[in-house]
């Protein structure tokens, strides 16, 4: 399993780095979007307004959003491309079984995206003067967030296996996620206060913002719920992915047929 993880990391890295123009343009796009978001947030807030930790909260939301969607895209789009080109069947010939291989791929993709994201975040903190905190406890809600994020990645992967063309689904999905992650729903009142525990990743993003932007400690009860949320979405993703694998084998559609 360690070997598999290492092999996936290496493959992901080589495929990424072998065409440097793609790498650079990718980073430039993320940077530009981030910067635009900042600028417009500051503009809307007005110069005299103390935006403070509100802005930081938005940054964190947006950063997590890019992280989650890039892992999701890596899994789903690559699955679709590989089905079209033919390597997917070779991957399904692994005695590890497809779920484990794709889990390793999701980890590799996350590692790569996390590195890019850190670079972008540091640059942005420089530009915006925003000061985010990185206490070690943030690893806990990050883990529960990633569990749910992987669950979603497997759901998207399942969609790619069954429907073949996932671009539209991914587009809608990204939009919904942006809504979910960027908006600080943990500050909501009314039914949303409770409903957010049912939506994927939301309890975790709330906690991350507490830790990184609001200077609060970790609320363990909320964290237990966030972890449960992560586990449930992860399990759901795995289940649906297995179903999709069986369906694709049934239809004979692992190749581009």
């Amino acid at each position: 399993m360690i070997d598999l993880l290492y092999a996936e990391l290496k493959r992901t890295w080589i495929q990424f780095i072998r065409y440097p123009t793609e790498v650079i343009s990718g980073i430039v796009i993320i940077m530009a979007v981030f910067y635009g978001l900042f600028a417009s947030a500051q503009y809307m807030a007005g110069p005299g307004f103390a935006f403070g930790d509100r802005l930081d909260a938005v940054v964190i939301g947006y950063a997590l959003w890019t992280l989650i969607i890039s892992v999701n895209n890596d899994i789903a789009i690559n699955l679709q491309i590989e089905a079209e080109t033919g390597t997917l069947e070779q991957v399904f010939l692994s005695p590890f079984g497809a779920p484990r291989v794709f889990l390793a791929r999701a980890f590799a993709s996350l590692a790569l995206r996390l590195v890019i994201l850190m670079v972008v975040l540091l640059l942005l903190m420089g530009i915006s003067g925003s000061r985010l905190a990185f206490p070690p406890t943030l690893l806990l809600p990050l883990a529960s967030l990633l569990l749910a994020g992987y669950g979603l990645a497997f759901l998207m992967g399942a969609a790619a296996l069954v429907f073949k063309r996932v671009q539209q689904i991914l587009g809608i999905f990204q939009f919904l996620l942006l809504f979910l992650l960027a908006a600080p729903l943990e500050e909501a009142t009314g039914p949303m206060q409770y409903l957010r525990f049912l939506l994927p990743m939301l309890p975790s993003t709330g906690l991350l913002r507490d830790l990184m932007a609001r200077g609060l400690g970790l609320d363990w009860v909320t964290y237990a719920l966030a972890l449960l949320n992560g586990l449930v979405y992860f399990a759901l993703g795995m289940l649906v992915f297995r179903w999709a694998e069986a369906t694709a084998k049934q239809r004979g559609s692992l190749s581009g047929y």
């Binding site: 080589i14 495929q15 033919g86 070779q90």
Partner: peptide, 17 residues
């Protein structure tokens, strides 16, 4: 297995990789 068609490999990787 080598399946039909020309894409059983990752084209961006070398044979050794």
């Amino acid at each position: 297995a080598v399946l039909e068609g020309n894409r059983n490999l990752y084209w961006r990787l070398t044979p050794a990789e």
